[in-house]
Simulated assay, not measured.
Amino acid sequence: MMQTTTQVTHEEYFDLLAKSDVKLEYHAGEILAMAGAQPAHNRLCITLSTALENCLSDGECMVLNSDQLIKILECDKYTFPDVVVVCRKPVYEKSPQGINALENPVIIIEVLSDSTEKYDRLEKFDCYKTIPSFNEYVLVSSKKKRVEVIKKLNESEWLSHTYTEKDEYVLIGDCSISLEKIYNKVELPDIKSIGF
């Protein structure tokens, strides 16, 4: 991620975003350019989106990919999560540039990388928690078969469950998804060769 040093307004951000070839996130006056992702990351986004779409296609929820901008009012942020589920009627903040930022995500999924994991787990999660509709956060490892699902119990409590290769299925929302399907054709690093 590359960060700007000058403060920009929301309007300036949307002007830049409309003209940009890369995804730009807005963090309280600063703009961060999102780096391209690795193949394992990209593949996991596809397998998760497909599995969730297959599960949710007949209900009131829908799946949106990483091109969907999310507005986090309390933190003055606009972000691009990897996968988002919204239920009932989506609510969007519409910019003059024609970019719609979703305001009511229910489930947010982030595929973790070395450069973003700490931010995704801490600061980003703290901001996502301020969105009233948000009630489930899913963190997916791109290094090993590991999916962490964090569900909202009430305003101050969240329950975390970690699924590993010992588990056959992962429960995301009301969807029971095979761990093998999530990691289908995902090339994970050889643990021995990276010194673990």
Results as ranks from 00 to 15, higher is better:
Ile177Leu: 04
Lys181Thr: 15
Asp15Phe: 11
Met2Asn: 15
Lys89Asp: 15
Val83Leu: 07
Glu74Val: 04
Arg121Ala: 01
Ile109Thr: 11
Val86Gln: 08
Ala35Asn: 13
Asn42Val: 08
Cys45Ile: 15
Tyr169Pro: 00
Ile70Cys: 00
Val91Gln: 13
Glu168Trp: 06
Ile131Met: 02
Tyr163Leu: 02
Arg146Ala: 00
Lys185Tyr: 14
Ile150Val: 12
Cys127Val: 09
Val149Trp: 01
Glu168Gly: 10
Lys152His: 04
Leu44Ile: 12
Tyr163Asn: 08
Leu17Ala: 15
Val138Pro: 00
Glu157Trp: 04
Arg43Pro: 00
Ile182Gly: 02
Glu12Asn: 06
Glu117Pro: 03
Val63Ile: 14
Leu17Gly: 04
Val111Lys: 01
Arg146Pro: 00
Asp82Asn: 08
Glu168Pro: 06
Ser133Cys: 05
Leu24Ile: 14
Ala51His: 07
Leu102Lys: 08
Ala35Gln: 10
Ala101Gly: 11
Tyr137Ile: 02
His161Asp: 00
Glu110His: 03
Leu188Pro: 07
Val138Met: 02
Gln68Asp: 05
Ile108Gly: 01
Leu64Trp: 10
Ile177Thr: 03
Ser160Leu: 14
Lys94Ile: 13
Ser156Gly: 01
Asn54Cys: 12
Ser141Ala: 06
Val149Ala: 02
Asn154Ala: 03
His10Ile: 09
Val22Phe: 10
Lys89Gln: 15
Val138Asn: 01
Met34Tyr: 04
Glu155Met: 13
Glu157Met: 11
Ile172Asp: 00
Gln38Ala: 15
Glu155Val: 11
His27Pro: 01
Asp82Cys: 08
Met62Thr: 14
Lys77Trp: 15
Glu103Arg: 14
Pro189Ala: 05
Ser176Asp: 04
Tyr92Met: 02
Leu102Thr: 06
Gly173Ser: 06
Ile99Lys: 05
Gln68Leu: 14
Ile99Ala: 06
Ile131Asn: 02
Thr162Gly: 02
Lys94Gln: 13
Val170Gly: 01
Thr79Cys: 12
Asp21Tyr: 08
Leu69Val: 12
Lys181Trp: 03
Ile182Ser: 02
Thr162Leu: 06
Tyr78Ala: 08
Asn154Leu: 02
Pro39Val: 06
Asp21Leu: 11
Ala18His: 11
Leu188Asn: 04
Ile99Gln: 07
Thr79Met: 07
Leu153Tyr: 10
Thr79Asn: 09
Asp67Cys: 05
Lys181Ala: 14
Val138Leu: 01
Glu136Pro: 04
Asp21Thr: 13
Ala18Ile: 02
Trp158Thr: 10
Val186Thr: 05
Ile99Leu: 12
Met2Gly: 15
Glu103Phe: 00
Leu32Ile: 15
Lys71His: 14
Leu179Asp: 05
Pro189Trp: 11
Ser193Glu: 15
Ser66Asn: 13
Gln38Arg: 15
Ala101Thr: 11
Val86Ser: 07
Lys144Thr: 11
Asp15Ala: 15
Glu155Ala: 15
Cys61Ala: 10
Lys71Gln: 14
Gly29Asp: 09
Met62Val: 09
Ile99Thr: 11
Cys55Ile: 06
Glu123Gln: 13
Gly29Tyr: 10
Ser142Arg: 02
Leu73Lys: 14
Leu112Phe: 00
Cys87Val: 05
Arg43Ile: 07
